[in-house]
């Protein structure tokens, strides 16, 4: 509880690369709230496999290009 999961991500970086896509736009596209996108970017929440695939499809990359295992 409170400890960040050992999963890293490039969501914020990829959002900025995609014409500065807003957190709300990404949230609406993958079907979560903006607060959940914020939690993912801050490493406070690891998304479900389904959401991870949705995020990677939005950016047109593979899941492993968005998410990684720390260490």
């Amino acid at each position: 509880m409170g400890k960040a999961p050992p999963i890293t991500n490039r969501v914020k970086e990829l959002r900025e690369e995609h014409d500065g896509m807003s957190q709300q736009a990404l949230a609406d596209t993958i079907g979560v709230t903006r607060q959940t996108v914020i939690a993912i970017e801050q490493g406070k929440y690891s998304p479900s496999l389904e959401s991870a695939f949705r995020i990677s499809r939005v950016f047109g990359v593979g899941v492993e290009d968005v998410f990684g295992w720390e260490g």
């Binding site: 079907g31 979560v32 709230t33 607060q35 959940t36 939690a39 929440y45 998304p47 479900s48 959401s51």
Partner: peptide, 11 residues
Amino acid sequence: GEARKPADERE
């Protein structure tokens, strides 16, 4: 908008 949507996976 938000009130109509069900809770998302994190919520």
